[in-house]
Design a binder for these strands. Sequence first.
DNA 1: ATTGCTTTGTGATAAATGTCAAATGAATTC
DNA 2: GAATTCATTTGACATTTATCACAAAGCAAT
Lengths: 195, 195
Amino acid sequence: MILAEKRMSKSELQKILKSFFPNLEEESLDAFMKYASYLKSTKGTKLISEGKRHRYFYLILKGGVKSYYSKKSRDVCTWFAFKNEVIGTITTYEGLPSKETIELLEDSELIKFNIEKIKELTLTDLSISQLMNGIIIEHTLYLEERLYQLQFMTSKNRYKVLYELTPEIFQEVSLTDIASYLGVTRETLSRIRSK
Amino acid sequence: MILAEKRMSKSELQKILKSFFPNLEEESLDAFMKYASYLKSTKGTKLISEGKRHRYFYLILKGGVKSYYSKKSRDVCTWFAFKNEVIGTITTYEGLPSKETIELLEDSELIKFNIEKIKELTLTDLSISQLMNGIIIEHTLYLEERLYQLQFMTSKNRYKVLYELTPEIFQEVSLTDIASYLGVTRETLSRIRSK
DNA sequence: ATTGCTTTGTGATAAATGTCAAATGAATTC
DNA sequence: GAATTCATTTGACATTTATCACAAAGCAAT
């Protein structure tokens, strides 16, 4: 459920965006801000739903989300994101129906950005074009790392890496979701954990 | 072994690039061309080597390549590409050491592009910036599809999809490499094929 | 054709993981 | 606190796949 959607005070929003996107030129930031708005929403809210077209990508100010594909009864998670991360789906960015669902893991605060409008800005504003590229490239590097892990590493090692690099995920996400993310059943994850 | 590296006749190169990148403005194309050159090379040549920084991405005019990670004795392929495809690694594009090796599957003809110079162009030229984005986004969509297949589909189904969508790969690539691409051993692939 | 070399196929295991079922634990509601 | 629900763990078993060993087939060079 969406609790509140309002325009933040301009100066507050500006301050936040400035700290997140320090490379954005002053005028670019002003244009960018026009298509950004504050959003507060409860656990379980779906920011993006599988099979649907959407207009927004998001910056997480507070809280966390999971991204997953629906598979028969169970869901298979593809990533998690928390505070200070920019999120969305590349299909949504391309104007296509999303393949994944993005859902809030807890009550969260976000900034949402209108993709269509911001893509328009990228047509004339180089610093915004480069900002968006950077976001996409970061996501691409992440996908490659994930493919590497799924193709090369045993499930034990994938668990180990996840546990060592981002132990905080275990506080936020259910083991069932983590198991699906690691590419095993929850029973198998349970056995891996009891080493 | 690199057989020939020469500047193509300007008009020939222009004709090729124009047909591949029809959205590029006339002046952008001229700038772009400055950092493109023709390359003919034999089977087994490594365009990009794991662990090294490189300067180029490529367009395949004729022939084919495989991309793989070296793992102990055997290699694990991550993708194949043939005629009319733009190839490279995202790490190379970012100036980082490549994680993958890209190797010619057969004698091939390519256009190579200087990444550094072309990235400079993206700083001032919007149509080139957008062209590069498009290439990266296409790659990203491909990675997502591949992750989906590895997480969701059985090896039998992955084989089936590959066989139905791109049967020509089986003419060009060894079953050993295809097996590693599908995430199974060659023995398992052999058994899948004998259904 | 013969010799090597590489690729592919087959058989017999062993290991990893999935599936199903039930038990435990933890959190929530009445 | 008892009852309900949901998440996690554990056990028994089935399935898939890897591993190892070797045989067969394809190909190139002599």
